[in-house]
Structure formats: structure tokens, C-alpha cells
Amino acid sequence: MPVTTIGGKEVHVDDEGFMTNYDEWDEELAKQLAKNIGIDELTEEHWRVIKFLREDFKETGETPTLRRVSTVGGFPTKELFKLFPKKPAKKMSYIAGLPKPHGCV
């Protein structure tokens, strides 16, 4: 796994830059990760979503799907598309420092 420096901190990431070590993440890093993908400011609503993702991952060991964030987390899907435009599932997990959601092949 490659190591990269984000916001002055060394972290482990995969080939696409998704963090691979849950415990290396912190809120400062999240702000930097958000900037990397064009989200300049994380609002309170962004944070609520990110915190749900972090907590859900801790419980289940898997990055929650968009559907799970919407039905279990209670964030309407439309809202998630506004907060994390075009690719919410990918962007949310990137900022929350969780593995990228993937298919089988």
C-alpha cells in the first residue's frame, strides 16, 4: 500500500487515494481530502453524514452504501447528491477515510 502525505501527515492509501487505515483519519485530514475533490467547505450537514459513515463502518466493518446512508442514516438521497455532487458514494467514503465501495470485477 502506498504512503502519501496529506496536510502534513503521512497516511496509507490505495491506488486511487482512498485511505486504508481507519485510525489514521482525523477531522483536519477530512477537510484536506474534501478540498482534493473540490469540496472547499465542509458544512454541518457534511459532518453529520461523515460521522454516520465513520460510526457505521466501525460497527459493520464495511463502507455503507448510499442506500444505507439514506435509509439507516436518515439522509435523503437527493440531499446526498447536493452535498457530494455526481458521485456521492465515492466522495463520502473518500472524505470519511473509508475504503472505496466496489463491485466484484
Binding site: 448510499l66 458521485k87 458514494a89 465515492k90 465501495p101 466496489h102 463491485g103 466484484c104 470485477v105
Partner: peptide, 10 residues
Amino acid sequence: TPMSGAFTKP
């Protein structure tokens, strides 16, 4: 597809 591509594994 809802995924980022037809193939998602590198």
C-alpha cells in the same frame, strides 16, 4: 450502472 464503471477492480 450505479458503480463507477463496468469494471471496478484495478
